[in-house]
Design a protein around this nucleic acid. Structure first.
Length: 349
DNA sequence: AATACGGGGGT
DNA sequence: ACCCCAGTATT
């Protein structure tokens, strides 16, 4: 039995019953694939369900406000995916009359759709023979064929793409592609792979050579940057004792584009009250400050994959209101980073 | 050819 | 603390 036959057979016997497995509608497959980029099935599944409920078709998604899309995406991370998702939906509606491109090349032209996602959609929806190469495929192929090229090098990427295309069952790309990914996710796992009961143990070179634990090879040390954030949380109560605060939208480059947050002072090192008060009078519209008190003595360390954000929240009492007022009761309408959402959950306005 | 881009879960 | 996750876009 060939490599691909074993994969397809294992998939038939072991595949999970996932929400997007019961359809071949391009819209739903595309949505699931964007959500699952760099995201585990367990984390992405509830988001997929909520998106399908809120936007049953690409027309619903295209007609939504970007804010609404970002709000539904809140907590998933890599927010450019949400903005590109929305842009691609508009493209499909405006330029393709609501019908998704029906081949790899056409799909690749959509924002947020790269080689992997185009291959996944083309094979799952149209059975087009384009091999997917994701983290699971790198792992399975590198072990079975003992490939030592780093999977994140230019040579490695090209090599694995070609190898994947060669070992794919060109007659059954739909089942083969999903099968090898599912096999990598469930059986040929990064840690403690189940080699003892592996259907591919006979031909696996890494197993034979005792190198399963050293493959795939990756060459990257993500150097983490430490940053110091000071959020100034305005608190104002009107005549009826209704609480207000203030949010501003993140724009330009960097993390959390399009999300909302409190006015921010970033410093080179941990800041003190004097620095924050200077910032308040110099560079913010917040005036008539009543008092400013530190909410958390120890900075909250919010960890992104590439940044550690040491964060202090300063509660800034306001007597009179300026602009950008947001009733506390409407905070939940705004898409915010998890760091901000966690603060809002714990702070009593 | 590198780097930026989130957040959660496993070890 | 480190690694990985159904990767893509931008430098």
């Amino acid at each position: 039995m060939s490599f691909s036959e074993k994969i397809i057979r294992w998939y038939h016997d072991n595949k999970r019953d996932l929400p997007w497995r019961s359809t071949q509608e391009p819209y739903k497959i595309w949505l699931s694939e964007i959500i699952l980029q760099q995201t585990r099935v367990a984390q992405g599944t509830p988001y997929y369900q909520r998106f399908i409920t809120a936007f049953p078709t690409v027309f619903h998604l295209a007609q939504a406000d970007e804010e609404e899309v970002l709000k539904l995406w809140q907590g998933l991370g890599y927010y450019s995916r949400a903005r590109n998702l929305h842009a691609a939906a508009k493209t499909v509606v405006r330029e393709h009359d609501g019908t998704f491109p029906q081949n790899h090349k056409g799909l690749l032209a959509l924002k947020g759709v790269g080689d992997y996602t185009a291959s996944a959609i083309a094979s799952i929806c149209y059975n087009e023979p384009q091999a997917v190469v994701d983290g699971n495929v790198y792992r399975v192929l590198s072990r079975y064929f003992e490939v030592e090229h780093p999977v994140n090098s230019t040579v490695g990427i090209r090599y694995f793409r070609q190898l994947a295309q060669e070992v794919m069952d060109a007659e059954r790309p739909r089942d083969y592609n999903q099968g090898i990914m599912e096999f990598g996710a469930m059986h040929c796992t990064p840690k403690n792979p189940n080699c003892l009961f592996c259907p591919l143990k006979e031909g696996c070179v890494a197993l034979k050579e005792g190198k399963v634990g050293q493959l795939p090879v990756k060459t990257k040390k993500t150097k983490v940057r430490t940053r110091h954030f000071n959020y100034m949380v305005p608190v104002f109560k009107d005549r009826n004792d209704v609480p207000y605060t203030c949010l501003v939208q993140r724009k330009g480059k960097g993390i959390w584009q399009g999300l909302w947050q409190f006015p921010l002072l970033e410093t080179d090192a941990e800041a003190d009250l004097a620095q924050v008060q200077h910032e308040l009078t110099a560079n913010t519209p917040l005036k008539n400050t009543e008092e400013t008190v530190l909410f958390n003595e120890r900075p909250v360390v919010h960890k992104l994959s590439h940044q550690h954000l040491h964060t202090k929240f300063w509660i800034v009492g306001q007597k009179v209101w300026g602009e950008h007022a947001v009733p506390v009761s409407e905070l939940e309408k705004y898409p915010v980073p998890v760091l901000i959402a966690d603060f809002i959950k714990t702070f009593k306005f």
